[in-house]
Amino acid sequence: MTREEFLSELDELVELLPGTLKGPERLEDLDQWTSMAIVGFIALADTHNGTKLGPTQIAKCSTVDDLLNLAKVDPAS
């Protein structure tokens, strides 16, 4: 999964149109960054490359880029 594809999946999780999220967005500004979306992100990271992420790790992220780093999404992909 490329960075763009991963971002598109994140768009869907937080109920935004595909192509909306770019990376620098702050999670606290996303209305639909809810507990459901966090579960979806855990599933997405697991699907992407088998990364197992706990909510405690995710809670330390403040931006979408932080989430991508945590999920080990290659910035050049």
Partner: peptide, 23 residues
């Protein structure tokens, strides 16, 4: 998350439970 409960109620941390099942 906007959910209401007291200590007398069931609490579930859905994200932690989901993470547990993945392993």
């Amino acid at each position: 998350g906007g959910n209401v409960r007291s200590p007398d109620n069931l609490y579930m941390n859905g994200a932690e439970i989901f993470n547990f099942t993945l392993t």
